[in-house]
Amino acid sequence: MKITPLDIRQKRFETALRGFSRREVEAYLELIAGEFEEVVKENIALKEEVKRTQFKVEQHQERERTLQETMVTAQRISEDLKDAAKKEAEIIIADAEHQAEKIVHGAHQRLVQVVEDINELKRQRTQFESQVRSVLDAHQKLLETFKSPTFADRDYARVEDNVAYLSQKKANGDS
Protein backbone atom coordinates (compact mmCIF):
# COMPACT_ATOMS: atom_id res chain seq x y z
CA MET A 1 0.00 0.00 0.00
CA LYS A 2 1.28 3.44 -0.97
CA ILE A 3 1.03 6.25 1.51
CA THR A 4 0.24 9.71 0.18
CA PRO A 5 0.60 13.04 1.98
CA LEU A 6 -3.20 13.17 2.17
CA ASP A 7 -3.20 9.82 3.98
CA ILE A 8 -0.77 11.24 6.51
CA ARG A 9 -2.89 14.37 7.01
CA GLN A 10 -6.11 12.44 7.43
CA LYS A 11 -4.70 9.82 9.76
CA ARG A 12 -6.40 9.92 13.15
CA PHE A 13 -5.13 8.17 16.17
CA GLU A 14 -7.22 6.90 19.03
CA THR A 15 -6.92 8.91 22.09
CA ALA A 16 -5.80 7.29 25.22
CA LEU A 17 -5.66 8.50 28.68
CA ARG A 18 -2.19 9.46 28.95
CA GLY A 19 -1.47 9.62 25.22
CA PHE A 20 0.55 12.07 23.21
CA SER A 21 -0.31 15.67 22.90
CA ARG A 22 -2.81 15.94 20.15
CA ARG A 23 -1.52 19.23 18.85
CA GLU A 24 2.00 18.03 18.82
CA VAL A 25 1.08 14.82 16.94
CA GLU A 26 -1.00 16.74 14.41
CA ALA A 27 1.76 19.32 13.93
CA TYR A 28 4.27 16.57 13.47
CA LEU A 29 1.99 14.71 11.06
CA GLU A 30 1.51 17.97 9.13
CA LEU A 31 5.29 18.46 8.99
CA ILE A 32 5.81 14.87 7.84
CA ALA A 33 2.98 15.23 5.29
CA GLY A 34 4.60 18.43 3.91
CA GLU A 35 8.03 16.81 3.72
CA PHE A 36 6.54 13.66 2.24
CA GLU A 37 4.65 15.76 -0.32
CA GLU A 38 7.90 17.46 -1.36
CA VAL A 39 9.61 14.07 -1.59
CA VAL A 40 6.75 12.77 -3.75
CA LYS A 41 6.89 15.91 -5.98
CA GLU A 42 10.65 15.57 -6.23
CA ASN A 43 10.25 11.89 -7.00
CA ILE A 44 7.71 12.70 -9.75
CA ALA A 45 10.02 15.39 -11.13
CA LEU A 46 12.95 12.99 -11.04
CA LYS A 47 10.88 10.31 -12.74
CA GLU A 48 9.97 12.80 -15.48
CA GLU A 49 13.63 13.83 -15.73
CA VAL A 50 14.58 10.15 -15.96
CA LYS A 51 11.98 9.72 -18.73
CA ARG A 52 13.37 12.73 -20.61
CA THR A 53 16.92 11.54 -20.06
CA GLN A 54 15.94 8.02 -21.11
CA PHE A 55 14.31 9.45 -24.22
CA LYS A 56 17.47 11.44 -24.99
CA VAL A 57 19.58 8.35 -24.36
CA GLU A 58 17.37 6.37 -26.73
CA GLN A 59 17.70 9.14 -29.32
CA HIS A 60 21.47 9.12 -28.87
CA GLN A 61 21.52 5.34 -29.09
CA GLU A 62 19.45 5.52 -32.26
CA ARG A 63 21.84 8.12 -33.69
CA GLU A 64 24.76 5.96 -32.64
CA ARG A 65 23.21 2.95 -34.39
CA THR A 66 22.58 5.10 -37.46
CA LEU A 67 26.13 6.40 -37.38
CA GLN A 68 27.49 2.87 -36.96
CA GLU A 69 25.37 1.66 -39.86
CA THR A 70 26.52 4.67 -41.89
CA MET A 71 30.13 3.94 -41.01
CA VAL A 72 29.72 0.29 -41.93
CA THR A 73 28.04 1.30 -45.18
CA ALA A 74 30.75 3.88 -45.88
CA GLN A 75 33.39 1.27 -45.13
CA ARG A 76 31.70 -1.19 -47.50
CA ILE A 77 31.43 1.49 -50.17
CA SER A 78 35.07 2.37 -49.61
CA GLU A 79 36.05 -1.29 -49.94
CA ASP A 80 33.87 -1.60 -53.05
CA LEU A 81 35.46 1.53 -54.54
CA LYS A 82 38.93 0.20 -53.74
CA ASP A 83 38.06 -3.14 -55.33
CA ALA A 84 36.58 -1.42 -58.38
CA ALA A 85 39.62 0.87 -58.68
CA LYS A 86 41.93 -2.12 -58.32
CA LYS A 87 40.02 -4.03 -61.01
CA GLU A 88 40.03 -0.97 -63.28
CA ALA A 89 43.76 -0.54 -62.70
CA GLU A 90 44.32 -4.20 -63.55
CA ILE A 91 42.29 -3.77 -66.74
CA ILE A 92 44.23 -0.62 -67.65
CA ILE A 93 47.54 -2.37 -66.98
CA ALA A 94 46.48 -5.41 -69.01
CA ASP A 95 45.37 -3.14 -71.85
CA ALA A 96 48.63 -1.19 -71.65
CA GLU A 97 50.62 -4.44 -71.71
CA HIS A 98 48.60 -5.60 -74.71
CA GLN A 99 49.21 -2.28 -76.47
CA ALA A 100 52.91 -2.47 -75.58
CA GLU A 101 53.08 -5.99 -77.04
CA LYS A 102 51.39 -4.75 -80.22
CA ILE A 103 53.82 -1.83 -80.43
CA VAL A 104 56.83 -4.08 -79.83
CA HIS A 105 55.52 -6.60 -82.37
CA GLY A 106 54.94 -3.79 -84.89
CA ALA A 107 58.42 -2.39 -84.22
CA HIS A 108 59.90 -5.87 -84.65
CA GLN A 109 58.02 -6.30 -87.94
CA ARG A 110 59.24 -2.87 -89.06
CA LEU A 111 62.80 -3.80 -88.04
CA VAL A 112 62.57 -7.02 -90.05
CA GLN A 113 61.25 -5.01 -93.02
CA VAL A 114 64.03 -2.41 -92.69
CA VAL A 115 66.69 -5.16 -92.50
CA GLU A 116 65.17 -6.79 -95.58
CA ASP A 117 65.13 -3.40 -97.36
CA ILE A 118 68.77 -2.80 -96.40
CA ASN A 119 69.74 -6.25 -97.67
CA GLU A 120 67.85 -5.61 -100.92
CA LEU A 121 69.57 -2.24 -101.32
CA LYS A 122 72.96 -3.88 -100.66
CA ARG A 123 72.17 -6.51 -103.29
CA GLN A 124 71.08 -3.80 -105.74
CA ARG A 125 74.22 -1.79 -104.96
CA THR A 126 76.42 -4.83 -105.57
CA GLN A 127 74.55 -5.51 -108.80
CA PHE A 128 74.85 -1.84 -109.84
CA GLU A 129 78.56 -1.79 -109.00
CA SER A 130 79.01 -4.96 -111.03
CA GLN A 131 77.12 -3.43 -113.98
CA VAL A 132 79.10 -0.17 -113.73
CA ARG A 133 82.34 -2.18 -113.56
CA SER A 134 81.25 -4.18 -116.59
CA VAL A 135 80.41 -0.98 -118.52
CA LEU A 136 83.72 0.59 -117.42
CA ASP A 137 85.64 -2.53 -118.48
CA ALA A 138 83.88 -2.51 -121.85
CA HIS A 139 84.65 1.19 -122.33
CA GLN A 140 88.24 0.62 -121.19
CA LYS A 141 88.63 -2.15 -123.75
CA LEU A 142 87.07 0.09 -126.39
CA LEU A 143 89.48 2.89 -125.49
CA GLU A 144 92.39 0.50 -125.64
CA THR A 145 91.14 -0.69 -129.00
CA PHE A 146 91.10 2.88 -130.30
CA LYS A 147 94.59 3.55 -128.93
CA SER A 148 96.22 0.61 -130.65
CA PRO A 149 96.78 0.97 -134.39
CA THR A 150 94.26 -0.97 -136.36
CA PHE A 151 94.43 -2.30 -139.86
CA ALA A 152 92.51 0.68 -141.16
CA ASP A 153 94.81 3.06 -139.27
CA ARG A 154 97.81 1.38 -140.80
CA ASP A 155 96.29 1.50 -144.29
CA TYR A 156 95.40 5.14 -143.84
CA ALA A 157 98.92 5.88 -142.72
CA ARG A 158 100.22 4.15 -145.85
CA VAL A 159 97.80 6.09 -148.03
CA GLU A 160 99.02 9.30 -146.41
CA ASP A 161 102.59 8.28 -146.97
CA ASN A 162 101.82 7.52 -150.62
CA VAL A 163 99.97 10.83 -151.04
CA ALA A 164 102.90 12.64 -149.50
CA TYR A 165 105.36 10.76 -151.71
CA LEU A 166 103.37 11.45 -154.81
CA SER A 167 102.93 15.07 -153.84
CA GLN A 168 106.64 15.39 -153.34
CA LYS A 169 107.40 13.61 -156.54
CA LYS A 170 105.06 15.74 -158.41
CA ALA A 171 106.61 18.75 -156.87
CA ASN A 172 110.10 17.48 -157.68
CA GLY A 173 109.21 16.19 -161.08
CA ASP A 174 107.37 19.14 -162.22
CA SER A 175 110.01 21.38 -161.08
Rank of each mutant, 00 (worst) to 15 (best):
K141P: 05
T145R: 03
D83W: 05
E120I: 11
G106H: 08
A27F: 12
D137F: 02
E101R: 06
E79L: 03
A84F: 06
R125Y: 11
D155G: 13
Q61F: 05
Q168F: 09
E69G: 09
N162Y: 01
A171G: 03
I92C: 05
R22P: 00
R133L: 10
T70P: 02
V112M: 15
V132N: 02
D7K: 00
V112E: 15
R12G: 03
I91N: 05
L143P: 03
T145N: 12
V104E: 12
R125V: 12
E79M: 07
L142F: 10
P149Y: 05
N162E: 11
T150H: 03
E62I: 10
K170H: 14
R22K: 09
K147H: 12
I32Y: 00
F36Y: 02
D153Q: 03
G173Q: 06
Q54T: 08
K51T: 06
F128T: 13
E49G: 04
A27H: 03
E48N: 08
D174V: 01
I103M: 07
P149H: 02
Q124V: 13
E90V: 07
G106Y: 07
G173R: 03
E116C: 05
V132C: 06
L121K: 15
K47N: 09
R76M: 10
D137E: 09
A157I: 09
V132M: 09
R133P: 01
I3K: 00
I32T: 01
I77P: 02
P5F: 00
L31W: 04
S148E: 15
L31A: 14
V135Y: 08
Q113E: 13
E49Q: 09
E49V: 05
P149T: 04
Q113S: 13
R123F: 13
